[in-house]
Simulated assay, not measured.
Amino acid sequence: MASYLAQEVQLARRHDKILSQRLVLLQQMENHLGDKKTEKTLQTQAADAAYKRNAALLNDIEAAEKRLQARIHLQPHPDIVNLETLYWASVEESIPKWEQFLLGRAQTPVGFKKKKSTKYNISHPEGAAQR
């Protein structure tokens, strides 16, 4: 009977050891699960922050695009409009003078100088200046 008592004490100690190991493993599993939950929460927060940041950037880009589009459609400076008006008035005034010439029916209008083609002459010093 002493052997049964010794065996039962040994089994009780072994049972206690197994229970303590089980408790340690359960605690480790809970810690691991808590770490995973925390990690998932942090990833979710990071994804939300990235989404908000990307949305803000997209809004900024769209606003910049709208400002640039508005600038394109703005009226030019009054001085530029005035110069354009004077230029086109000058062109319209000159059309009758140039029309026959451009159609090949008349000589160049008065006040237009034809460029003379000059060849480079080494012996003539002014030839180098004219080139």
Results as ranks from 00 to 15, higher is better:
Gln10His: 07
Gln10Thr: 11
Gln10Glu: 15
Gln10Met: 10
Leu11Asn: 10
Ala12Cys: 11
Arg13Val: 10
Arg13Ile: 04
Arg14Ala: 10
Arg14Asp: 00
Arg14Val: 02
His15Gln: 08
His15Leu: 14
His15Lys: 15
Asp16Asn: 01
Asp16Leu: 11
Asp16Cys: 04
Ile18Tyr: 13
Ile18Val: 12
Leu19Thr: 14
Ser20Cys: 02
Ser20Val: 03
Arg22Val: 06
Leu23Thr: 12
Val24His: 13
Leu25Met: 09
Gln27Ser: 15
Gln28Trp: 04
Gln28Ile: 01
Met29Ile: 02
Glu30Met: 14
Asn31Thr: 12
Asn31Ser: 14
Asn31Lys: 15
Asn31Trp: 06
His32Phe: 04
His32Lys: 08
Leu33Tyr: 00
Leu33Trp: 00
Leu33Met: 01
Gly34Cys: 09
Asp35Thr: 01
Asp35His: 07
Lys36Met: 01
Lys37His: 05
Glu39Thr: 11
Lys40Pro: 01
Thr41Glu: 00
Thr41Trp: 11
Thr41Pro: 01
Leu42Val: 12
Leu42Thr: 04
Leu42His: 09
Leu42Gly: 01
Gln43Asn: 12
Thr44Met: 13
Gln45Met: 05
Gln45Asn: 04
Gln45Phe: 09
Ala47Tyr: 05
Ala47Lys: 12
Ala49Met: 05
Tyr51Asn: 10
Lys52Met: 13
Asn54His: 05
Ala56Gln: 04
Leu57Gly: 09
Leu57Trp: 03
Leu57Ile: 02
Leu57Met: 03
Leu58Ser: 13
Leu58Asp: 07
Asn59Ser: 12
Asp60Val: 08
Ile61Ser: 14
Ile61Asn: 12
Ala63Cys: 02
Ala63Asn: 12
Leu68Gly: 00
Gln69Asp: 13
Ala70Thr: 14
